[in-house]
């Protein structure tokens, strides 16, 4: 028999799973209704990219959230969030590859290697692949200590993903760059929360005493 806490976790997981599918449902609905505006390809690229980035940052927020709230169970949502981030990143990449540039294969090649913003975006997706592949419990066991080493890759991935967005819009236009800078600020905050502030404070207090 499951404990009440487990049942609650299962319910939370089901709700979260459904919530993570909502952006996809919205895109498919708008696509079916031809409601994506005059340039549907660009709309799909932007929306899938937005959600990949948001879910990646939400995944990165899990550990700080656990520390701040003291609720250990949130850790058990992290894999699903990370896999959904990978799912939307893959969708984003697929739309770009097959719908936007479909048929213009040579351009894809030059895009990925010549354009820094596409290079870092591609790199972010590429590095997510091993993390998705090793997300199972069996892989965790098999990799042991190396698993957490490997999964620290998510920190550079987060940075690459944010840069992908910042560099896309940058060009002396302060207003256009505002939204990507918000994502950058959130990323930096989530990284800063991981620093050992408590130890540093304690050391400082120790010195003062």
């Amino acid at each position: 028999m499951s404990r009440p806490a487990d049942i609650r976790l299962v319910i939370v997981k089901i709700v979260l799973f459904a919530a993570c599918l909502l952006p996809l449902a919205g895109m498919l609905w708008d696509l079916q209704q031809q409601n994506l505006g005059p340039d549907p390809v660009a709309a799909l690229e932007h929306r899938s990219g937005d959600w990949a980035l948001r879910l990646l940052l939400i995944t990165l927020a899990v550990t700080p959230l656990r520390q701040l709230s003291g609720v250990a169970e949130v850790l058990r949502l992290r894999r699903m969030l990370g896999l959904f981030a990978f799912f939307y990143a893959s969708l984003h990449f697929a739309v770009y590859l097959f719908i936007d540039l479909g048929g213009f294969w040579r351009q894809i090649f030059s895009d990925i290697f010549k354009r820094p913003f596409i290079t870092v975006g591609f790199l972010a997706w590429l590095l997510l692949v091993p993390l998705a592949v090793t997300s199972t419990r069996g892989m965790m066991r098999r990799l042991g200590r190396n698993w957490s080493r490997l999964h620290r890759l998510v920190y550079p991935i987060g940075l690459f993903a944010v840069l992908h967005y910042v560099w896309l819009v940058k060009s002396g236009q302060k207003i256009a760059v505002r939204e990507p800078l918000v994502y950058l600020a959130i990323y930096l905050l989530l990284m800063a929360l991981r620093l050992p502030w408590r130890r540093w404070l304690a050391a400082l207090r120790g010195k003062a005493a």
Binding site: G26, D30, Q33, N35, L36, G37, A43, H46, R47, D50
Partner: peptide, 13 residues
């Protein structure tokens, strides 16, 4: 369709 709109600048809403 207004209800289901994500990004206001892209959706033709």
């Amino acid at each position: 369709l207004l209800a289901g709109c994500g990004r206001s600048d892209e959706a033709a809403a």
